[in-house]
Design a binder for these strands. Structure first.
Lengths: 332, 332
DNA sequence: CTGAAAGCGCTTACAG
DNA sequence: CTGAAAGCGCTTACAG
């Protein structure tokens, strides 16, 4: 079908029937007789008629589009969560617009303002680091006041009253720490490059709790991603260490490398547990024991929640927790 | 500002000025006097007026939205290419809709049909494996006939006359092979899990060319991702091998593992070159020599191309090649 | 310089 | 059962 897409108006002049009748027929209205319905549907198919979504959106006030606002897609957690979101959404009549904030508050605010009027029906968001630090949440409440649904996942703000999907970070870390303690480790170090994020704080608390319960001193090393390896190496050079927990991918990989360079054996001398993707865990030497966040499931749950929220227009906000699990491999 | 977004109509009744005047004032038309312009702009700001993008889109026939249709976002190449696309797009007044085909032809076709009428102005696409196999390209030509711009990257169809961003796969492989030959390797094996893709075929040709020139026999092992390790191990167990090139991430990781399990040393006994992300390359033991595709640059170029194409409405299609480079690390 | 009118492509009360 | 009219929120010729 060359040329631009055919419209109801054009169809109307072809068929000699009014636009309203055509619209109703194509939407299978009971008002229209089966005979004309059939005629219209056939002609529409012949001309490959596709309703203009923009026009439908303007009329209905719904766009069937959801914004996914996340810090990055390089991070395997977000990549896989996005996959989970997309998988669920693609089974509905919604589309997703993806916006990457790169941890910038300004970018996040701009995105919300840009999309809130007419472009999307709701937002799935993992809050940027900068927004968490600035504690500036007006862009969330503004769009909610304008009737848009909001669901946060992983990076969540307690004080904003929206849908939430999280993981049990506190418990996951406390259990992982207990596992190390159970295998006779005493000098367990925590390495983190995400101490500024709420998730990082939660995880750290879980570690502290388990260590306190066991009566062991806590050692918490915090650094940016670039220097994590050096920080770890430095500590290793003059302290006893028989266990390390990496709180995020950068910390985990840095820890492995630092131990390797120090000449110690994993897991004989030092056991390591970390956060990396399944695929990477399998390809490290030795394979890394990981805390698995089930990112796909988290994304899926967030998508399901926002679709339900938009469809039901209900104001009550759900909260879902997807538990992390420990996948024990060669490093512990 | 509680309640729903304010419209020109509401602004009009507040200010006692016609809708047309307000529209012109906000679009800074020279037709409007500075005095009223100022009054209107101030009031609009006070009420946090945001133009309804859907209405603007319907009127103008432009949506300022671009579809990015890719097989996956788990694959680090596509994740990083998407990052490159998003980075450029976010500096313009365009948005991106992301759709993941999971290598399914049906999903790809559905996406193009769904978005072609009114939702997006153009498509950036990396063609799915199934579409390449079926050689069924009508969904591309249809949207182009409807006036939408199309830019393909990485996964490209020669016979479709659209914008294209590719890499020099043939040359990159032939150079990588020559590098191994230059360091006295003779028995160089190619391992691939992407032999069904055009990129895979191109790369393989580059390898064959270099081996033929050197007068060495080619050995090409093809497998799905799941069995690549076993295929490689099997070959290693009864043949001389002093070099391996992995044509994709799965093949590269499988090759490393198979060599390791065979007890041979990398790079002393067997040199390995592969395709994995920079980050993963650094965290493998030994660090992997890689062919670096510059995915960010590729995504960036594709995004720039489609924005230019939409803005200029020109029909002439560009073709850009972003060269891959060899990053030599410990494995070769 | 300002405003009334038409129109983008639809849907949906309301008449007939 | 079919159609004319209004309207979603804008922009832009065209009048005045």
């Amino acid at each position: 079908m060359p040329g631009s897409n055919i419209t109801l108006k054009q169809l109307s002049s072809i068929l000699g029937v009014s636009i309203s009748t055509i619209s109703k027929a194509l939407n299978d209205s009971h008002e229209i007789s089966d005979v004309t319905k059939k005629r219209i549907v056939e002609m529409a198919k012949l001309h490959n008629y596709q309703p203009n979504k923009i026009a439908v959106g303007l009329k209905s006030g719904k766009t069937n589009t959801i914004a996914v606002v996340i810090p990055s897609v390089q991070n395997s957690f977000f990549a896989r969560a996005l996959y989970g979101i997309e998988s669920l959404i693609s089974e509905t009549n919604f589309n997703i617009i993806v916006c990457l904030t790169k941890e910038s508050h300004a970018k996040e605010v701009e995105t919300f303002n840009m999309l809130s009027n007419g472009v999307v029906d709701g937002f799935i968001v993992a809050v940027s680091e900068e927004t968490q630090n600035l504690q500036s949440y007006d862009h969330f409440t503004n769009v909610m006041e304008n009737g848009k649904s909001v669901v946060m996942f992983d990076r969540v703000i307690d004080s904003v009253n929206c849908g939430k999907v999280t993981t049990n970070d506190f418990t996951a870390l406390s259990e992982a720490t207990q596992t190390l303690i159970g295998s006779e480790r005493k000098h367990i170090v925590l390495l983190s490059t995400i101490h500024k994020l709420n998730v990082g704080k939660q995880r750290t608390q879980g570690y502290i709790k388990a260590m306190n319960t066991a009566g062991f001193p806590t050692v918490i090393l915090e650094s940016d991603a670039e220097h994590a390896g050096a920080v770890m190496a430095d500590y290793l050079s003059s302290n006893p260490v028989d266990g390390i927990i990496g709180l995020d991918t950068d910390a985990s990989l840095s820890a492995l490398k630092a131990v390797r360079l120090s000449g110690r054996q994993i897991p004989k001398d030092v056991a390591v547990i970390g956060y990396v993707s399944e695929r990477m865990a399998h390809n490290l030497t030795p394979e890394l024991t990981t805390i698995n966040q089930h990112s796909y499931t988290i994304g899926n749950a967030a998508a399901r929640m926002i679709v339900e929220s938009i469809r039901s227009k209900s104001k009550e906000m759900q909260q879902v927790v997807v538990s992390s699990t420990l996948s024990v491999r060669g490093s512990s």
